[in-house]
């Protein structure tokens, strides 16, 4: 029997000594954690941009500028319009098209415009909500995956204990410490994912409400113009 006077508790040796399943679980958790952090940062930037754009567009829109002028600016621009701009663009485009057609009453023109805006709105919100489901999954599942790794590691360490005549804490402790790393990693993946998920859904909800109110107000303006 090998006598280990000083059990090596450094993190890397613990990783190296862990059983294959536990290592696999840790790898899985590492990938999940990395992906969730990637999406967290992506969404953070994307939402920041979307909110800023909405602010700017509302300022421009309520600043009393001509609707035609705004539309020209948007369509002639190099960048594809996004968010609130996109909704405005889709609505105004449809409105102009329907207006050109003769023999349509105001309500059907407004219905068509509203449908076009609704479609653009849904696409925009969907784009914002992309990958949030992944964060939710990581947040809810990775603690269990980590726990699985830990349970497996502890099982192994106790099985090893069965072969030893005199059981001491020194026989079990390293195995349990190794196994607990899996739980730590699961929590490390889950906690930020849950926080980010909650925060981002809240932000997106607020943004969606802003879009919807804008749609209603814009419809009113268009209806007034149509008369």
């Amino acid at each position: 029997m090998k006598i280990e006077a000083t059990p090596d508790f450094s993190f890397l040796t613990m990783l190296a000594n862990a059983s294959f399943i536990v290592q696999l679980v840790m790898l899985l958790l590492l990938v999940a954690s990395f992906m969730s952090w990637l999406f967290i940062f992506q969404k953070m930037f994307a939402l920041r941009v979307a909110i800023k754009q909405a602010d700017e567009f509302e300022k421009e829109f309520w600043g009393g500028a001509d609707l035609n002028h705004i539309f020209q600016n948007l369509t002639s621009g190099r960048l594809t319009p996004r968010g609130m701009e996109k909704i405005f663009e889709a609505g105004f485009r449809e409105y102009a098209k329907l207006k050109k057609q003769s023999g349509l009453d105001i309500s059907s023109v407004m219905d068509g415009t509203r449908r076009a805006m609704r479609a653009a709105y849904q696409r925009e919100v969907d784009a914002l909500e992309r990958k949030l489901a992944f964060l939710a999954t990581v947040g809810s599942v990775s603690p269990y995956v980590g726990l699985f790794g830990t349970v497996w590691g502890i099982m192994n360490s106790f099985r090893g204990l069965a072969n030893v005549g005199q059981a001491t804490l020194a026989h079990v402790a390293p195995g349990i410490a190794e196994a607990l790393i899996a739980t730590a990693m699961g929590l490390f993946a889950a906690i930020p994912a849950v926080i980010a998920y909650n925060r981002y859904t809240h932000d997106i909800d607020r943004l969606a409400i802003r879009y919807e109110s804008f749609m209603e107000e814009f419809s009113n303006i268009l209806q007034r113009q149509a008369r």
């Binding site: 590492l30 954690s33 952090w37 940062f41 992506q42 930037f45 941009v49 696409r123 925009e124 990958k131």
Partner: peptide, 22 residues
Amino acid sequence: MIAPAADHYRFQSGALALLVHA
């Protein structure tokens, strides 16, 4: 179809995620 805004920040986000894990 609109390109998702997040794509512009892929590399920044990747670097930041790496930093967090490091």
